[in-house]
Amino acid sequence: MQAISSESLSKTYKRRFSNRNLVHALQDFSISVQPGEIFSLLGPNGAGKTTFLKILLSLTRASSGTATILGISIHNKKIRSRIGYLPENHRPPGYFTGQQLLSFFGNLSGIPRKVLHSRIPLLLQTVGLSEWQDMKVRKYSKGMLQRIGLAQALINDPDVLFLDEPTDGVDPVGRKEIRDLLINIKHQGKTVFLNSHLLSEVELISDRVAILDKGKLLRVGSVDELTSRGLLYHIGVESEIPESAKEELSAKVLKITYGVGTLAAELTSIGELNAVIDILRKHNVGITSIVKQRSSLEESFLNLIKREVAV
């Protein structure tokens, strides 16, 4: 059973009284997320990330297509007792204290009072708000609001957690704490679905990533798959490479460039890498390191979006 599955999901917004100027927020969007994964959805503003989340949570109806969470149709209200959601720019009722807010959302989730009594202090501790549990939420800073929002999303101990920009407004220490928390949740066998602009963070914790633009799915894969730059290696060397070795290397390798104490080789197979090492060793060039080159997720993302714009 998949944690999240969508099939040909589309959402088109129409202008009132007119069929012109249709906005295709989501087009034929199909993905599946496995249980226990941290899955991130990336895309520029207006790509359709939040629309997809809202359809999954029945906040918005899809124009066509189907979706399930934990094998249950998203239209079945019961599924919402097994999920948690932190919306982007959420606005919890400010007249509650942090503790009252969690109690209220716990009641709405149908959690027995006894369970809430023990769970709320733990959650407040987890998100680092124990000290401020009796302060009115309206007095919370942006970072504190994100933390209490995360706590309310966890109040029902959900199997699937949806987070829309969870680290927005949180300081670096807080962001690290949230990342650790998400990894901990994943280790409990739960699924985390993340929408984020902070690609460096997504890269650190995500198992798989999907890139979305103008409502269309561009790519899905592991962070390794998306950031791999083919077989580009940087090889560190102890001494200068003799001209004879350079000639041999040029004959063997498609593209090679030399720097100080290093060479960069663009290869077509692992066999070629072994051949490069053999040539260097034959000419008594000591090897200090061999590093496979990758681009950052941000670079891969930007390249993909640029390519899409060019098409």
Binding site: L57, L59, H90, P92, F105, L108, N156
Partner: peptide
Amino acid sequence: LEKGTIDLYLSKPVA
């Protein structure tokens, strides 16, 4: 019904 508030309510199992 405001954005950011309604999302919190409707993500809970409440009709």
